[in-house]
C-alpha cells in the first residue's frame, strides 16, 4: 500500500513545475509575474531564486508576443512552459495558438513539432466579474492540433504537466484558481498522468455524472449526498477535452443507462454539447432516460456573489437534478 500525502492544489502544481525543470534542461517557465512577484497566484514562488532568471522568465504584458515566442522556442528545440496568467488574457494570444501552434505540424506535412505547454489559471467563483470569469475550455477544445487538458483534481495538478512534457504537440492546461488553497490527499508516489485518458473518479451504477475542471469535486460531493439517498452515481472526470477519450464515458453510460453532463461553461456549443452528441451517436440504445445537462447560464458573469453563484451549477443543483432524473 502506498502512503498518502496531504497537499494543496497550489503545492501540487508547483511540485510538477519544479520536477519538470529538474528533469529536462530544455524546460523553462515564462509568464507575467512568474519570477519576482512569485506568480500571480504564488504557484511559482521561490522558483526564480532556485532556478535563476534564464529558466524563470518574467515577461512584459505582451500575451501574443510571448506565447508566440514560446511556440518559436519549441520549434527550435526548447520545452517552454508558458504561463498565461489567466485564461481571460489568452484571448490576446489566440492567433498564435490557433494559427501557429495548432497548424504547423500539419501545414509542414509533418516536419515541424511544437512541444509547447501553455498553463492558464481559469474558473469562475471569485467575484471577478465578466472579463475575468471566462470558461474557454470549449473554444480551445474546438481546435484540432491542440491537446486540451483540464486539471480538475490534485492528482492531476501533480501529474498532468509531467504527462504534457512527454508530448510532441502543443498542450493547453486549464488550472482552476478557486482550488489553489484546497487541501486533499493524493498517493505519495503520484507522478506522470496519462494525458490521453479520462478517469472514473467514483464508481456507481445508477447514473453517470460526466464533468471536468471544477465540476469534478462538485460532482463527487453531489455523489456522496446522493449515496445517502440510495442513489449510486458514477463520476467521470473527462480530463482531456481534446482529443476526447470517448471510450471511458461511453462505457460508463452503457453501465448506468443515464447521464448528466456538468460544466461551468456556457451551454451552447460547449463541451457538454459534444459529449451528448457522442452519446446519441454511439450509446443511444443503452439509455433509459434522456441525457441532461447542467451548464453555465448564458450571461457574462456578474460581480455580486449571489448572481455569480446563480450563473454556474452548484452541488445542490446537481443533487436536485439527479433526483428528478432518477425518480421522476
Amino acid at each position: 500500500m502506498t502512503k498518502n500525502v496531504s497537499l494543496t492544489y497550489r503545492e501540487a502544481l508547483k511540485m510538477a513545475i519544479r520536477e519538470a525543470l529538474h528533469k529536462d534542461e530544455r524546460v523553462f517557465l515564462m509568464g507575467e509575474d512568474v519570477g519576482r512577484y512569485g506568480g500571480a497566484f504564488a504557484v511559482s514562488k521561490g522558483l526564480l531564486q532556485e532556478f535563476g532568471p534564464d529558466r524563470i522568465m518574467d515577461v512584459p504584458l505582451s500575451e501574443s508576443g510571448f506565447t508566440g515566442a514560446g511556440i518559436g522556442a519549441a520549434l527550435a528545440g526548447m520545452r517552454p512552459i508558458v504561463e498565461v496568467m489567466t485564461v481571460n488574457f489568452s484571448l490576446l494570444a489566440m492567433d498564435q495558438l490557433f494559427n501557429n501552434a495548432a497548424t504547423l505540424l500539419h501545414m509542414s506535412g509533418g516536419q515541424l513539432n511544437v512541444p509547447v505547454i501553455i498553463r492558464m489559471g481559469s474558473g469562475i467563483g471569485r467575484q471577478l466579474a465578466a472579463q475575468h470569469s471566462h470558461s474557454w475550455e470549449p473554444f480551445f477544445a474546438h481546435v484540432p492540433g491542440l491537446i486540451v487538458l483540464s486539471v480538475g483534481t490534485h492528482e492531476d495538478a501533480r501529474g498532468m504537466l509531467l504527462g504534457a512534457l512527454e508530448s510532441l504537440d502543443p498542450v493547453i492546461l486549464f488550472e482552476y484558481t478557486s482550488m489553489l488553497n484546497l487541501e486533499k490527499e493524493i498517493p505519495e508516489d503520484s507522478g506522470v498522468v496519462d494525458i490521453s485518458k479520462s478517469k472514473v473518479r467514483r464508481e456507481g451504477t445508477d447514473i453517470s455524472l460526466i464533468t471536468y475542471g471544477t465540476g469534478v469535486y462538485k460532482c463527487l460531493e453531489a455523489a456522496e449526498a446522493l449515496e445517502k439517498e440510495g442513489i449510486k452515481a458514477e463520476v467521470i472526470d473527462l480530463r482531456v477535452l481534446r482529443p476526447l477519450d470517448e471510450a471511458t464515458f461511453l462505457a460508463s453510460v452503457r453501465k448506468t443507462h443515464r447521464a448528466l453532463v456538468v460544466e461551468d461553461a456556457w451551454k451552447s456549443v460547449s463541451i457538454s454539447s459534444e459529449i451528448v452528441s457522442r452519446i446519441m451517436e454511439k450509446a443511444f440504445f443503452d439509455l433509459d432516460a434522456p441525457v441532461e445537462r447542467l451548464c453555465g447560464v448564458e450571461v457574462p458573469i456578474p460581480y455580486p456573489k449571489h448572481l455569480e453563484d446563480a450563473s454556474v451549477p452548484q452541488v445542490s443543483d446537481i443533487v436536485e437534478k439527479v433526483k428528478k432524473m432518477i425518480k421522476p
Binding site: 490576446l92 465578466a130 472579463q131 456578474p302
Partner: peptide, 21 residues
Amino acid sequence: GRGGSMHLFDSSLNFFGGNAI
C-alpha cells in the same frame, strides 16, 4: 452592481469605464 470595482460606468458623464483587460 454587475461590474464591481473594476467596471465603473456612467454614460451621463461620458465615463466609459473600467476595463479590466
